[in-house]
Design a binder for these strands. Structure first.
Lengths: 135, 135
DNA sequence: TTACATTTAGGATTAATTACTAATAATTGG
DNA sequence: CCAATTATTAGTAATTAATCCTAAATGTAA
């Protein structure tokens, strides 16, 4: 099966790269609709899956939440806001962690790892402190 | 609102601790039904949420489809099988990683992190090699 | 330009989880 | 102990995110 770079695919890819955020399928759907009003949500889902399979974009899966897609393909880590669920990139020296204890996982063939910091983003901190002020 | 330790809650907690696995709500539902056939799936979901809020169990929102719940409360990491989706504990020295680059996440208040190794478990490796043999 | 493969829109379907509701059970104050 | 209050339950409906399905459309290749 050969991959065709259709209009739909191109726009999805372009929008994701252009806005440099970790978007969900439906967020991207809303953006893409502006350029291509008749595109279907299923097409967005399908193509995000295909593009990530092809290694053109990255996919972020955190269970219980929506998948997010990543404009940046190289391996890197993320930080996640527990309040608004946004995801940002995180720059950590990966080689310090690698290998280390991973082999410890008895029996497993380890292919990689995912490191995800958890916290509250700046915007949400501001909102929180506003709320505090009202008390 | 005060927390009552009901029969349902007790059995859910006991089963999760007894089998020492990272179970999904519906797996646990099947186990608990043996002791309490009329329990409702919604009760299992609700109580897992409540128990994890109360700090009596852990909740795993790692990649994959379903949430899993953890008999072990102390902070630790996990390894995830991409084939069968099982999750096992992982023993890594946490203090070596901590703090490090996490502050790098500009603006975020970091409360912790999640480290998740990814690989293929022993059972699935065996199954794979069997399949290979058949070719 | 005909045959074949891939992709699409749009709606239907599924899977996991949460919300709702009336009934039940525990807890508290008297 | 009894009424009033509060928490919890079973069972089901609703919601959410994602995937599947189908006929039509589009691209590719001979």
């Amino acid at each position: 099966m050969q991959l065709r770079m259709t209009n739909q695919r191109e726009i999805i890819l372009r929008e994701l790269r252009r806005c440099k955020k970790h978007l969900t399928a439906d967020e991207l759907y809303d953006m893409v609709k502006k350029d291509m009003p008749r595109i279907s949500l299923a097409t967005v889902y399908r193509n995000l899956e295909i593009l990530s399979e092809a290694g053109l974009i990255g996919k972020l899966e955190i269970s219980g939440r929506q998948k997010r897609f990543d404009y940046e393909v190289e391996v890197h880590d993320h930080i996640y806001c527990v309040v608004c669920h946004r995801v940002d990139n995180l720059n950590i020296e990966r080689n310090e962690i690698d290998a280390k204890g991973l082999a410890a996982a008895k029996g497993y063939t380890v292919t990689g790892y995912r490191l995800e910091a958890i916290g509250v983003c700046l915007e949400c901190q501001k909102k929180e402190s506003k709320k505090e002020g009202l008390k």
